Simulated scan of single mutants.
Amino acid sequence: MREIYCSLLFVGILAAADVSPESEKSIARVSLVGLIASPGAYDEKKVSVIGYISTGYEDEILYIHREDYENSIPSNGVRLVIPEQMRGQLKSGRYVEVHGVFRMYTAGDTSNGMAGRITSITKIEPWFLAAQEHQGRGCW
């Protein structure tokens, strides 16, 4: 009887344990609209966002929509600080998923109307690939 009790207890503990990777547990999945609307809520936090990427000579910006890029509406985007080793794999003009640390702009920053920037980027992936990865995981 004691062995059955111990086995059930062990199975219960395993079922209740969160076995997702540490990086997945600590990342806030947020819409770009939510990030722009409430930058203070995500300041200095790891985030995962989806948006339309524009890469240029000095600017890398993640916009809410392609039309925001086409109409030069920087307040509908956040700046990306992309690591040098990731720059070669980027293609401008597509929707991507970005993982990194959000840092909101303060009064003294040159923001061009943007709410902040994403730094310490660990992932930039075309959205259609990321969407396939998340299929079957529930709502997200």
Rank of each mutant, 00 (worst) to 15 (best):
V98I: 10
N71A: 07
V98M: 01
Y95H: 04
E70M: 08
E67I: 10
L90Y: 08
G51V: 04
D59C: 00
V47E: 04
E60C: 10
A131S: 13
M86K: 01
G100N: 11
R2E: 14
E58F: 14
S38Q: 14
L62F: 07
Y69L: 08
D109R: 07
E70I: 05
A107E: 15
E125W: 05
G88Y: 07
V81L: 07
P39M: 03
S72I: 15
G34H: 10
F102Y: 07
S54T: 06
R66Y: 02
G93M: 04
Q85E: 14
G113P: 12
Q85W: 09
V96H: 10
A107T: 14
V19L: 15
H99M: 03
V49E: 13
G116C: 06
G136T: 00
E97T: 07
R2H: 11
A130S: 15
V47H: 04
W127F: 13
A131W: 09
W140G: 12
E133R: 14
P74V: 07
E97A: 08
R103H: 12
V11Y: 09
E60P: 00
K25N: 15
L129D: 12
F102G: 08
E125I: 14
R117K: 15
H65I: 03
R29D: 07
I53M: 08
L62S: 00
L90M: 15
V98Q: 03
P74L: 10
A37M: 10
E60D: 15
F10P: 01
A130E: 14
C6W: 09
I27W: 03
Y42D: 05
E3N: 12
D59W: 08
M86V: 00
S31K: 04
Y57K: 14
L14A: 13
N76I: 02
P39S: 05
P21K: 04
E125F: 02
L35M: 02
V30W: 04
G40S: 14
T55M: 08
Q132R: 12
I53A: 04
S111K: 12
Y42V: 05
K25P: 05
I121W: 02
S75L: 11
V49H: 09
M114W: 06
R117N: 11
G116W: 06
M86I: 02
H99S: 02
Y63N: 11
S20R: 15
I13H: 00
G138M: 03
S111H: 15
Y42G: 03
R2C: 04
R79L: 14
S31Q: 07
Y63S: 12
I73G: 04
G138K: 00
G40C: 08
G77W: 00
T55F: 06
A115Y: 07
R87G: 12
V33E: 14
V30L: 03
V101F: 00
I124W: 03
A17F: 15
P74S: 11
K45E: 15
A107S: 13
E97L: 07
L14P: 09
I64V: 13
E3H: 10
I124H: 01
D68C: 11
R117W: 10
T55P: 01
G136Q: 02
N76T: 02
Y63W: 14
V98L: 07
P83C: 00
S92Q: 01
G88E: 12
T55H: 07
E70K: 11
E22F: 10
S120H: 12
A37L: 09
L9H: 11
R117C: 11
G88C: 00
A131R: 14
G93Y: 04
Y95M: 04
D109Y: 06
A131C: 01
Y42H: 13
L14I: 14
K25L: 13
